[in-house]
């Protein structure tokens, strides 16, 4: 029963929460209007330039590079390794396995071995510096420990407790085609699998949403096309109250008086 829950119901629940949660967050951001142009200059004027800057932001973290070289190195390596590991795992999801997934298997393997290093660095950095410790909250440590646990269990599965991966692939393809086929798994694989489900459930509701958020960020996704008029969708008109001594009407009268040669 427990096996059935962990390997059949939990995956559907967590993937469902992940997809709906991420879409929900995107919807929350997308429906909120952007009243002002608050682009960080220097910014590109053209759509093409903007696309290039956004892609550069996503791939290379140039702002972070300007801010802190060590942090940039840690963050950058972590994200590169993470992507390689995720892409390597596609071999369990696709049948037949495409050539490019096969091609990155070795790179993905070493990325998997190395990924605890930047994770440990990011964790140590939070603890060592007074100011980063001050701003760190439970959610930050939760995400780091979760990722560390997932990566370490993955390494152990690769090196010491080798799993029969035909069963793993049968499990995942079974889930994808709604014909679940479960067998007996090593407890470490169960741990690895469940922790990933936990990550998927947590993902939409915490800071991990920074991944999609960049594309909605008004300071990074706007152009510096200051010549074009920017219209605030919820703009309203303003009025003067009786206590304001110099409303527009008074100015109109003053100018009229001057035109008619009257002294103010």
């Amino acid at each position: 029963m427990a096996t059935k829950f962990l390997f059949i119901y939990l995956p559907y629940i967590s993937v469902g929460i992940f997809i709906l949660g991420v879409l929900y967050q995107f919807w929350r951001w997308a429906r909120t209007p952007v009243p002002l142009r608050i682009v960080i200059t220097p910014a590109p004027k053209t759509r093409k330039g903007l696309a290039l800057r956004l892609i550069g932001d996503v791939l290379l973290f140039p702002s972070l590079f300007k801010a802190d070289k060590l942090l940039w190195a840690g963050g950058f390596l972590f994200h590169v390794f993470l992507w390689l590991v995720i892409l390597r795992h596609l071999r369990y999801f696709l049948y037949p396995v495409p050539g490019w997934v096969e091609a990155i298997q070795t790179a993905g393997l070493y990325a998997g071995y190395l990924i605890p290093i930047p994770l440990a660095f990011l964790l140590a950095r939070r603890l060592i510096f007074e100011r980063t410790l001050y701003i760190s909250i439970l959610g930050d440590f939760f995400a780091l420990f979760l990722l560390l646990a997932i990566s370490l269990s993955g390494i152990l599965l690769q090196v010491f407790f080798r799993t029969y991966i035909v069963d793993v692939k049968a499990l995942i393809l079974g889930l994808i085609y709604f014909q679940p086929a479960i067998s007996d798994y090593h407890w470490l694989f169960t741990l690895h699998f469940v922790l990933i489900m936990v990550l998927l459930i947590y993902f939409p509701f915490g800071k991990l949403m920074h991944s999609g958020g960049l594309f909605f960020s008004s300071t990074r996704n706007q152009r510096a096309n200051f010549e074009e008029r920017f219209v605030n969708p919820w703009d309203f008109s303003v009025s003067y109250n009786v206590q304001n001594l110099f409303p527009p009407e008074k100015y109109r009268e003053t100018l009229k008086g001057m035109r008619e040669g009257k002294k103010e």
Binding site: Q25, R28, W29, T32, P33, V34, P35, I38, S63, L64, A67, D68, L71, G75, R125, F129, R131, T132, I135, S136, I137, D140, K207, M209, H210, G213, L214, F216, S217, S218, T219, W234
Partner: peptide
């Protein structure tokens, strides 16, 4: 305010507390 400014909502949501801004 949260329903009028995407910036505010988003910025409150996505900060990862990396501390890059802390000493700036």
């Amino acid at each position: 305010v949260l329903n009028k400014y995407r910036s505010v909502r988003l910025f409150l949501d996505i900060c990862v507390k990396c501390g890059a801004c802390a000493d700036k």
